[in-house]
């Protein structure tokens, strides 16, 4: 019973999350003494690299008509691949693509699914994040086939130095009622949900004209920028920067919260960050309770100094 991994690609390149899902699936396969097989849909190159994360074989359905992401078609393709490989465990990343395809596949195969997995399974029991990162649940899958969607940046990747064999795959491609009309990227900047470092600021910055230093810091660190909800609501920053319970949930390695009080709804979207740095004038700001490092001080004095200190480090 092999393990099947859906490896998502974007503009012909495998995503960071695809490698995480691959490594997760390969570790399960290894624990069960079986192989991990990845499925890639649409034009993409560099697929052998999945071998470095433990994938033995890649099934590639490279039909150019599939370059536009189509969950209905991909669901059918993965189901066909699972049948061919006799796979009983199917792995996704719990990202934008995974959220579009995995639930469909679960219903199609009548297979129990756990999303937001934060650890390798223990038998049929999988640990997942619940209550917006405020707790974990252990969920048992009761069906023979299981589907697991891994929470990005929460399970360590294991490299093996291997290379995967790539095989062309074909199957009946199901019809779909969806047409992709256009893809609009907000900017050429780093995407917030994929960034390793995020510099975020809140109402403490007083006005949109003061974001220059936040952008400077982000630039020095190679970070993406984010903001609290009121800042997006008043229009100081674009909506796609809003993080928290009602905006994007992010899990970077390093999160700077500058002039953000740390309301529970804000924390719900950022509490998965590995290291949190808080800069706030108010020593009583709730964010310090969630912080790893803190400076009680005025952002307008601290941040410019921080920019200089980072410059010095990078020099």
């Amino acid at each position: 019973m092999s393990v099947l991994v859906y490896a998502d690609s974007n503009n012909g390149t495998l995503t960071k999350n695809a490698f995480e899902a691959a490594s997760y699936g390969a570790q399960i396969a290894q624990a069960n003494g079986t192989n991990a097989v990845a499925v890639v849909v649409g034009s993409a190159s560099g697929l052998e690299d999945l071998g470095n994360y433990g994938i033995a074989k890649v099934l590639h359905l490279s039909d150019a008509s599939l370059d536009n992401f189509d969950p209905q078609k991909i669901t059918g393709i993965i189901a066909a691949a699972a049948q061919q490989e006799g796979a009983s465990t199917i792995i996704f990343s719990h990202d934008f693509s995974g959220k579009s395809v995995a639930p469909r596949l679960s219903a199609k195969l009548d297979a129990g699914m756990v999303t937001g997995a934060v650890a390798l399974p223990n038998g049929n029991v999988i640990k997942k994040a619940v209550f917006s990162g405020k707790a974990f649940a252990e969920v048992e899958v009761n069906t023979d086939t299981k589907i697991i969607a891994v929470l990005p940046n929460s399970v360590d990747k294991v490299t093996t130095g291997g290379s995967a064999s790539v095989e062309a795959f074909s199957c009946d491609i199901p019809s779909s009622g969806l047409t992709v009309k256009e893809i609009k990227k907000e900017s050429t900047e780093l995407s917030l949900t994929e960034a390793d470092i995020v510099v975020s600021a809140g109402r403490g910055l007083k006005g949109p004209e003061n974001w220059g230093m936040i952008e400077d810091l982000a630039k020095e660190l190679g970070a993406a920028t984010a903001c609290s909800r009121p800042v997006a609501d008043i229009g100081w920053r674009p909506h796609h920067e809003h993080v928290g319970q009602t905006g994007f949930a992010i899990r970077p390695n390093l999160y700077f919260a500058i002039g953000i009080s740390g309301a529970i709804q804000h924390l719900a979207g950022v509490n998965g960050s590995k290291v949190i740095v808080v800069i706030n004038t108010d020593a009583e700001a709730p964010f310090f309770k969630a912080a790893d490092y803190g400076i009680v001080g005025d952002a307008f004095e601290v941040v410019p100094k921080l920019v200089e200190a980072v410059k010095k480090l990078k020099a």
Binding site: F96, T179, V180, K181, I183, K184, E194
Partner: peptide, 10 residues
């Protein structure tokens, strides 16, 4: 989607 939006019709 990652870093943007996709416009679809159905």
């Amino acid at each position: 989607i990652e870093g943007g939006v996709e416009v679809v019709e159905t």
